[in-house]
Computed example of a mutant assay.
Amino acid sequence: MTVDSPGTATAGPQDAPGRAAGKSPTPPAATGPKDVRQPSRGRRSLPGGLLPYLLVTPALLSMAALLLYPLIRNVMLSFQQLGRKEFITRETVWVGFDNYADLLTKADFWTVVLRSVVFTAVNVVAIMAIGTGIGLLLNRLGKKMRLLLSLALVFAWAMPIVASVTVFQWLFDEQFGVANWLMRTMGFAGYDQHNWFETGFSALAISTVLIAWGSIPFVALNMYAGLTTIGTELYEAAKMDGANGWRTFWAVVFPNLKPFFLITTFLEIIWVFKAFTQIYAMNKGGPNRESETLPVFAYIEGQGQFHYGVAAAISVLTIVMLVAIMSFYFRLILKQEEEL
């Protein structure tokens, strides 16, 4: 023991018996866990970056078999002249871009394109507006009325398309249709055995009602699900600021559900643009092919006129239009992510 200063003592070398005996001091024991789990020798784990790709491989293979191969075959057919003669002789006649050139120089094709765009725009606006309003109504109703309305929406959404088309054909029947009876009851003249499908405009109008009726439940239920994620304090703050219902929607609901509106609008554009069964089963694109949209136009050119190469070219051009719409949507998504 040595004393450095009055009242202070430090331990000297004589206090370390191990060092005095000429031995090195024993290192302190490790404080970590005693049992270290070793990897199993009988089973090797996959690399962390490879496992996600293995999990999505079955889905990718299924999509390649069900979507990619038919798409490639369809593109190949669009460069061929495939009619009745080629079907009988099994001859492959390559015509290059002649099918596309014939379509792009025909006024009938551009008339169908314009009709399809207008038809899609009217449907999407109606579906999103009415579906959003019903979703807001679901959020305000009590439990019993909300359950009743939700069940009605689900039943409308779950009805098969052909069955719903049959119901609408009965509703607008010339002799026993409810539409003619209702118009006569309201005092309108000229609706005794009125043909609602005598013009392409009226046929598309009925198809618009049918498509909107089947698509509104999807938007309404998703809208209600999105509204449940908005905190009540935001509504209370808007109410304290004196905002009315319309102002509350644009200041609270729309900014919080902007991704919902983007993805839902995008999906509705795709679904309506490629709608086929509702239009063809309603009136087969008539009268005089005045209610044809691009999918119906492609089907009639292929199955009705036996111009399968031209029909394939129409479908390829339809896909190109949808890809253009998708690129616009993805730009909006990327722009929104940059703003966050």
Rank of each mutant, 00 (worst) to 15 (best):
M1C: 07
S5Q: 09
T8D: 11
T8V: 09
A9H: 12
A9G: 02
P17M: 00
G18A: 08
R19V: 15
G22P: 01
G22Y: 10
G22L: 08
S24D: 12
P25W: 11
T26P: 02
P27I: 05
A29F: 00
A29I: 07
A30W: 04
A30Q: 06
K34C: 04
V36M: 01
R37M: 10
R41Q: 14
G42C: 06
S45F: 02
S45I: 08
L46F: 10
Y53I: 06
P58C: 09
L60C: 14
L66V: 12
L67K: 09
L71E: 09
N74T: 15
S78D: 12
F79M: 14
Q80T: 15
Q81N: 12
K85F: 05
K85L: 14
E86S: 06
E86I: 00
I88T: 15
T89A: 11
T89R: 04
T92V: 15
T92F: 09
F97C: 09
A101L: 12
D102F: 05
D102W: 01
L103G: 04
L104A: 02
T105A: 03
T105V: 05
F109D: 14
T111A: 03
V117S: 07
N123L: 06
V124Q: 04
A129L: 13
I130K: 04
G135Q: 12
G135I: 07
N139G: 12
R140I: 11
S150M: 02
A152G: 00
V154E: 06
W157F: 11
V167R: 02
W170R: 02
Q175C: 01
V178F: 06
T185D: 14
T185K: 07
T185C: 11
G187R: 08
H194Q: 11
N195W: 00
F197W: 05
E198N: 10
A205E: 07
A205S: 12
I206P: 01
I206Y: 05
S207Q: 09
T208H: 05
T208Y: 10
L210I: 09
L210T: 13
S215E: 13
S215N: 14
I216M: 04
A220L: 06
A220Y: 03
L221G: 02
M223W: 04
M223E: 14
A225M: 01
A225K: 01
T228E: 14
T229Y: 03
G231M: 04
R247E: 14
F249V: 15
A251N: 02
N256H: 07
L257W: 00
F260C: 10
L267R: 02
E268K: 00
F276M: 11
T277R: 03
A281I: 08
M282R: 04
N283M: 03
K284N: 15
S291W: 03
L294Q: 07
P295C: 12
V296D: 06
F297E: 09
A298G: 08
I300G: 04
G302W: 03
Q303N: 02
Q305H: 07
G309R: 03
A311D: 09
A311F: 01
I314T: 06
S315M: 12
L322Y: 05
L322E: 10
V323K: 00
M326A: 05
F330A: 04
L332C: 01
E337G: 03
E339P: 02
E339W: 01
